[in-house]
């Protein structure tokens, strides 16, 4: 194992899959000559050439659709959105063309495409650039969605996504690009299955279900709570769809108390679905109503203090844990 950044992990995943399969190519805004808006594709143009690392104009619908078309005839495109907030300009391609094609064609055309890029609020980018899109895309059958929170998960999930025969959204996180973590050595072909959650910390009093940007918040909260003699288990979903329901049920059956910490908004957010699943399957295991920590239901304000008020935080997670623990 060695310590690398989340950005480096993604870069390694891209390079390894480009190397492995000639049908894989990377397309998006600033991915080639600029080396990526967030430097995730650093060095790939030099290594793989301009036919496989392709700069596009600012035409999200156009190049996302090109990816879908190329996937129909056997290529395996990786489409980078500079941020998933911009994927909304390509929404029709992502939700109408990519996931519907297999059904509409009676099983003739699967679409092996990866859409990737940062998702969720970063820092003071305002309402248009701060969307957490996972709850939107989760509503469309035919899509798969993963949300890596660590360098290891970023590498393993992206590599798996590229090899998947379906449209997969890899929702990265701008705030995590420079974070570091231990990852297997380069020669190790690291693949992490979609739909497998991971316990990031074991505990016995309460389960904090989290993903993406809320994972470090939940871990920080758990650390603080330990000092107050509350043992919190931190379950990182890693994939939103497929959802690892078994892992959720197993943890909740152990702790009997749940806080869902999500980075999207509360109305029809990911947490709403998780709460439903838990009460449907193991209602009797619950010792308290489930609490949710999410964004506030407002367009994101620019002002730093107000933005902090909108976002989930370790403090909000701690408060929610205390509430469900009646502490």
């Amino acid at each position: 194992m060695r310590e690398i950044t989340y950005r480096q992990a993604l870069n390694e995943a891209l390079a390894e899959e480009l190397e492995r399969d000639q049908n894989v190519f990377l397309m998006g805004e600033e991915v080639a000559q600029y080396n990526g808006a967030y430097k995730v594709s650093q060095g790939l143009l030099d290594r793989f050439g301009s036919m496989r690392i392709i700069d596009t104009p600012i035409s999200e619908n156009g190049f996302a659709g090109m990816g879908v078309g190329a996937a129909m005839v056997g290529l395996r495109p990786i489409i980078e959105f500079m941020t998933f907030s911009f994927s909304l300009v390509a929404f029709d391609q992502v939700v109408n063309n990519a996931p519907n094609m297999l059904t509409m064609s009676g099983g003739q055309f699967n679409i092996p495409i990866t859409f990737r890029g940062p998702n969720g609020p970063a820092h003071q980018l305002g309402a248009t650039h701060s969307h957490a899109t996972e709850c939107l895309y989760a509503n469309f059958p035919g899509l798969k969605i993963c949300t890596p929170a660590t360098p290891r998960d970023a590498k393993g999930l992206l590599k798996t996504a590229i090899r998947d025969n379906n449209p997969v959204l890899v929702l990265e996180s701008e705030l995590l690009y420079s974070s570091k973590g231990m990852v297997e050595p380069l020669e190790h072909d690291l693949l992490i299955p979609l739909g497998q959650a991971e316990l990031k910390r074991e505990g016995s009093d309460v389960t904090i279900i989290c993903y993406a940007q809320t994972v470090p918040l939940a871990l920080a909260a758990a650390e603080t709570l330990e000092g107050e003699e509350i043992s919190a288990e931190v379950l990182d979903l890693r994939s939103i769809k497929p959802l690892d329901l078994q892992a959720i049920l197993a943890s909740v059956s152990k702790t009997h108390r749940v806080v869902v910490a999500e980075q999207d908004r509360p109305y029809c957010g990911i947490g709403a679905e998780i709460c439903f699943r838990i009460q449907k399957e193991i209602f009797d295991e619950l010792d308290a109503p489930i609490a949710r920590v999410s964004q506030e239901d407002v367009p994101m304000p620019y002002n730093e203090r107000l933005e902090q008020a909108v976002l989930p935080s370790a403090e909000k997670i701690i408060a929610a844990v205390k509430k469900v623990c009646y502490a």
Partner: peptide, 8 residues
């Protein structure tokens, strides 16, 4: 755009 992708 799909046609452009197929041609690509």
């Amino acid at each position: 755009p799909l046609a452009a992708g197929m041609a690509f």
